[in-house]
Simulated scan of single mutants.
Amino acid sequence: MLLTLSLVLLLLHFVTKKGGGNSVPNVWQSLVELIYDFMLNLVNEQIGGLSGNVKQKFFPCILVTFTFLLFRNLQGMIPYSFTVTSHFLITLGLLFSIFIGITIVGFQRNGLHFLSFSLPTTVPLPLAPFLVLLELIPHCFRALRSGIRLFANMMAGHSSVKILSGFTWTMLCMNDLLYFIGDLGPLFIVLALTGLELGVAILQAYVFTILICIYLNDAINLHQNSFLFIIERKRGIYA
């Protein structure tokens, strides 16, 4: 994890040294600008009900989270490296710390009214305590689900590549022409899975980050505003 953060900081340092980048960006500067613009658009689209300046307060945390997960997942594709995100305690600890921060933001902006996300307006008062308890449980399990999703996808893909690679190597070491010819099938499957794993590494970093934006939007605007915001976005897409 320290190695990943060091590489990211070195990349940003060399791209932005001497007060900024080149007027004609090179490959690395284009990569950094692409990630920056992509995350900025994601924050502006997913978090509603706030002005642009207020949204910028959450942007650094979201950008660092996405960048760390992206580089960490891609580093895990290097042979003999260590994939941190394929371990459940790492992903769970990362998301729980962010989830606690999101909950604090929700109480800061809405006060005790933040608890109303678990209580629909038409519910009879005697049922309110039971519904609040029932809704708080899935709310707390959001972090658990997201952590499991990232860990399970990374571990399953790496395990598949490891098993098929071992099977391919065993067939190559058989010193038999038939095994050598038959080894081409598993070899092509390993190559295809490796390409698929690269896509999964990028996609899981994006999914993890967009879920954080959705949870943050729910904490700021509560579920009713978040639902109206999604409807408005869909209407704009259909239009």
Rank of each mutant, 00 (worst) to 15 (best):
L74Q: 09
L112F: 00
F68C: 05
L119H: 03
V105W: 09
G111W: 00
Q108V: 15
G93N: 10
L70M: 09
G101C: 12
Q108P: 01
G111R: 01
G93I: 11
L115A: 01
Y80K: 08
I90Q: 10
S86Q: 15
P120M: 07
G111S: 07
R109H: 10
L70S: 02
F66Y: 15
L69P: 00
S97I: 14
L119M: 12
T67K: 01
V84E: 09
H113Y: 05
I104Y: 11
S116H: 03
G106S: 13
L94V: 09
T103Y: 07
L95G: 02
L119F: 04
T121F: 13
I100V: 15
F117M: 05
F117L: 02
R109K: 14
L94E: 10
V84H: 10
G93R: 10
I98T: 05
F66I: 04
R109F: 06
G76R: 12
Q108M: 15
T67L: 11
Q75G: 13
L112I: 05
L94C: 08
F66W: 11
N110G: 01
L92Q: 10
F114T: 01
T103I: 13
G101K: 05
F68T: 03
F117G: 00
G101W: 03
S97E: 08
T67N: 03
N73L: 04
L115K: 01
G76A: 10
F82E: 15
G76L: 11
L92F: 12
N73A: 06
S81D: 14
P79F: 05
G111Q: 04
L74E: 08
F66E: 02
F107H: 11
L69M: 12
T83M: 05
G111L: 00
I98C: 08
L70C: 06
I90D: 13
F114P: 00
N110R: 01
F117R: 02
I102F: 05
I98Y: 04
G76I: 15
G106D: 06
F71Y: 08
R72D: 12
Q75L: 15
R72Y: 12
S118C: 11
T91Q: 11
I90F: 15
V105S: 09
L69E: 12
P79N: 07
N73H: 12
G101P: 05
M77F: 03
R72W: 09
P120W: 00
G76T: 14
I78G: 08
V105A: 14
G111F: 01
H113P: 00
H87T: 05
F82D: 15
L92Y: 06
I100P: 02
S97K: 12
T67V: 08
F96G: 02
S86G: 15
